[in-house]
Design a protein around this nucleic acid. Structure first.
Ligand SMILES: [Zn+2]
Ligand SMILES: [Zn+2]
Ligand SMILES: [Zn+2]
Ligand SMILES: [Zn+2]
Lengths: 168, 168
DNA sequence: AAAGCTAATTTTATATTATTACATTCATTG
DNA sequence: CAATGAATGTAATAATATAAAATTAGCTTT
């Protein structure tokens, strides 16, 4: 496979991804202890796979990737782990892609604006405070009581624009 | 079937739905002529089914509902019609539900805020100008070039809140 | 009218995503 | 240790969506 999404495999040098991972896993472990829920080996495994990079990843991709380690894995295995991680706010489900991505705001305000790059498939999470405020006003005006939000934007991220420009 | 989503089947008296339908179908016919594209019988049929109400409707529900009239209908029949209607901006796809709803801003600005009621399943489209402006700023700050937006809010609509309150 | 072209449709098959149900195992605690 | 509830294993299937090839219908050109 060599789709556009697979290009740019190496993160930019100034991005220390090991740090991202250790922070995310550390936070997850801590939160689960605090909350008295179990970050079991399967759940831990899935969370690590999701955090291999900042790209949106599909459930069945995760299944394929976990099989070498856990031969018994079935769809339900993955979906159950994903459900748990979503409940605990450790990952986001991207509705418009049927895909998942690690959340790096875990524990704080969780419904962020997701900027999803069509070219590198990376997802940037943004608090977008002004947007959220404008949304609140809108809900008040409409008399609408919010339970959950999916705010997903598709386009080209700043890194890919830079790369594209260089190529010309 | 008698899920919560099927309650409130009668639109409020002040809502003349025939008017909604005739406006939507009229606009669609007009736009297709202007654009030199064909609103074929199948596409027209599907658009009418979608406009039976303001609720989100699933592709396979449409398939079931169109079969009595068009026995030959298959998934591809529906999905092609839906693709066409989406391309022409005549309906919205609701990513977080895998469902569809008529668009009543057809021809104008198309990416609106969708307020989706969990109780009655109706979808309200709102231009939400302030939100859109705040979003634009956010994209500029992020250096992100937008191709498309999915702005979907789930909760309880003002009508259902009213009904719920009366019941207490 | 016949041939050629294009958009739309039909048909069959299959891919992808997600859930259900039930049996079993594991961890915790009384 | 036994009871309990949480988590996992396993199989089957449901729900959503697309691919590909053959056919048809409506035009255009000759
Ligand atoms: Zn990173
Ligand atoms: Zn990118
Ligand atoms: Zn109406
Ligand atoms: Zn409602």
């Amino acid at each position: 496979m060599n789709t556009p999404a697979e290009k740019n495999h190496n993160p930019s040098p100034e991005h220390n991804h090991e740090k991202c991972v250790s922070k995310a896993i550390g936070t997850a472990e801590h939160l689960c202890v605090v909350r008295g829920v179990q970050l079991t080996p399967i759940r831990h495994q899935v969370l690590e796979l999701i955090w291999e990079n900042h790209k949106a990843v599909k459930a069945y991709e995760l299944l394929d990737r976990i099989k070498p380690v856990m031969d018994a894995a079935k769809p339900a295995t993955i979906y159950r782990a994903l459900d748990f991680l979503i409940e605990q706010g450790l990952i986001h489900r991207i509705e418009s892609l049927n895909a998942f991505v690690g959340c790096n705001c875990s524990g704080h305000q969780h419904e962020q604006l997701l900027l999803i790059c069509k070219q590198c498939n990376e997802v940037e999470e943004r608090p977008a405070t002004e947007v959220m405020q404008a949304l609140s006003l809108e809900f008040d005006q409409a008399g609408f009581v919010v339970h959950s939000k999916a705010l997903e934007i598709h386009g080209i991220c700043v890194k890919c624009i830079g790369l594209n420009d260089k190529q010309n």
